[in-house]
Computed example of a mutant assay.
Amino acid sequence: MSGTPQEIFRRYVHAGTVSRNADALAECFTEDGVLEAPLVPAGAAFPGRLVGRAAIRTAMTAYYERLPETDDRAPNLDKTACVLHATADPDVFIAEIDTVFDGDGGGEDTTVSLVQIFRIRDGKIVRLRDYFSPDLVS
């Protein structure tokens, strides 16, 4: 499967953030793909490092099952902004994201900024480093 960085990123976001489909998320990765969240402390609900498509599938299934079906913290995709940056390496791109969560009961929206570094091969993610505030997954 091939794809532009935009297509790969769109598939990844839809599989994870939008649909919470661990099978689809795992399929975004190569068989030996790595998903890392370097800022997440050991023992957190969200896994800090997963190696291999099977491990990604298993751990993310368990993580998604812990989340409430209706999540008050679900991002508002219409307000969320994302910029993809090309690098000198054609197999690496960076996603700069400002995720917006609607304010509770009419309160102010909350914006959470994060950065994701993607290394790709043949349209799949070989390594993804996801830098976000660990508070989001605690």
Rank of each mutant, 00 (worst) to 15 (best):
T70K: 12
L114M: 14
A15N: 03
P41G: 02
A59F: 06
G3S: 09
R73K: 10
T30S: 15
E31G: 13
E36M: 04
V137R: 05
I97G: 00
Y12V: 00
T111S: 04
T58E: 14
R119K: 09
D32K: 11
G3A: 06
A42D: 12
G106T: 03
E27D: 15
R129C: 02
V137Y: 12
F9Q: 12
V13Q: 08
V51R: 15
R121S: 13
L84E: 07
V137L: 13
S19G: 10
P5M: 12
R121C: 11
D32Y: 06
L50N: 05
L128T: 04
D109A: 11
E31N: 13
L39D: 07
L84T: 02
A22S: 14
D122W: 04
R20A: 02
R66A: 13
G16N: 08
R57A: 12
R73I: 00
D109E: 03
F132A: 11
Q116M: 11
M60Q: 07
I56V: 09
L67A: 03
Y64T: 00
D102W: 01
D102P: 00
Y63W: 13
N76S: 14
S138M: 10
A81Q: 13
A95D: 08
L39V: 03
S133L: 09
D109H: 08
K124S: 10
D91F: 09
P134M: 05
G106C: 07
S138H: 07
P75H: 01
G33V: 05
P47Y: 08
D91E: 14
V115W: 06
F9V: 08
D72M: 11
V51K: 15
L25R: 08
M1N: 11
D135K: 14
R57E: 13
A55T: 05
G33P: 06
R10V: 12
V83G: 01
G43I: 01
T99W: 02
F118K: 08
Y64M: 00
P47K: 07
V34S: 12
A62R: 14
D98Q: 05
G52C: 04
P5D: 06
V100T: 09
V18N: 01
T99D: 05
K79N: 09
K124L: 15
A74L: 08
G103W: 05
V100G: 02
V40L: 13
D72G: 01
D122P: 00
P90F: 12
E36H: 05
G106F: 04
